[in-house]
Simulated assay, not measured.
Amino acid sequence: MAIDAIVANMDHVWSALAAPRDPAQRNEQGDAIKSLLQRIRDDGYPLLLVSDMNAESLNSVISDALGEDGITWFSAILASQPCSDRYAIAVHTLETSPHRVMALGSSEHELAEARAFGIAHCVHLNDALLHASP
Score class of each variant (00 low, 15 high):
97 S>C: 11
12 H>L: 09
66 L>H: 06
64 D>L: 13
2 A>I: 14
74 F>P: 04
35 S>P: 01
86 R>P: 06
29 Q>P: 04
31 D>W: 08
3 I>V: 12
76 A>K: 09
53 M>K: 10
42 D>W: 07
131 H>D: 09
44 G>K: 01
125 L>P: 00
33 I>Q: 02
2 A>W: 12
78 L>Q: 08
104 L>V: 10
74 F>D: 01
39 R>Q: 15
37 L>Y: 05
49 L>Y: 04
7 V>F: 05
111 L>D: 00
32 A>S: 15
133 S>G: 10
92 H>N: 15
70 G>R: 04
2 A>E: 13
96 T>Q: 07
112 A>Q: 15
102 M>S: 06
72 T>G: 07
113 E>T: 09
85 D>A: 09
48 L>G: 09
133 S>V: 11
32 A>P: 02
132 A>W: 03
96 T>H: 06
26 R>K: 12
39 R>V: 10
91 V>N: 06
91 V>T: 07
112 A>E: 15
39 R>C: 10
26 R>P: 04
36 L>P: 05
20 P>W: 10
65 A>I: 03
17 L>G: 05
58 L>D: 06
5 A>C: 12
11 D>N: 06
34 K>S: 11
95 E>T: 14
127 D>S: 14
80 S>K: 12
87 Y>E: 02
122 C>W: 05
127 D>Y: 06
116 A>S: 15
87 Y>K: 05
60 S>P: 00
67 G>Y: 04
45 Y>S: 02
13 V>I: 09
46 P>Q: 04
26 R>V: 11
73 W>R: 05
15 S>H: 13
40 I>Q: 04
41 R>T: 13
39 R>T: 13
16 A>G: 06
88 A>S: 11
132 A>R: 00
104 L>M: 10
40 I>K: 02
86 R>T: 00
58 L>V: 04
92 H>C: 12
84 S>C: 01
57 S>W: 02
46 P>V: 07
90 A>E: 09
59 N>A: 12
82 P>E: 07
99 H>T: 14
120 A>D: 06
132 A>D: 08
74 F>T: 01
123 V>W: 02
103 A>F: 03
4 D>K: 03
120 A>T: 13
124 H>W: 04
76 A>E: 12
82 P>V: 08
110 E>K: 00
18 A>E: 13
120 A>V: 11
117 F>K: 02
98 P>A: 05
99 H>I: 09
122 C>D: 07
9 N>R: 14
98 P>C: 03
119 I>F: 07
64 D>E: 15
118 G>H: 08
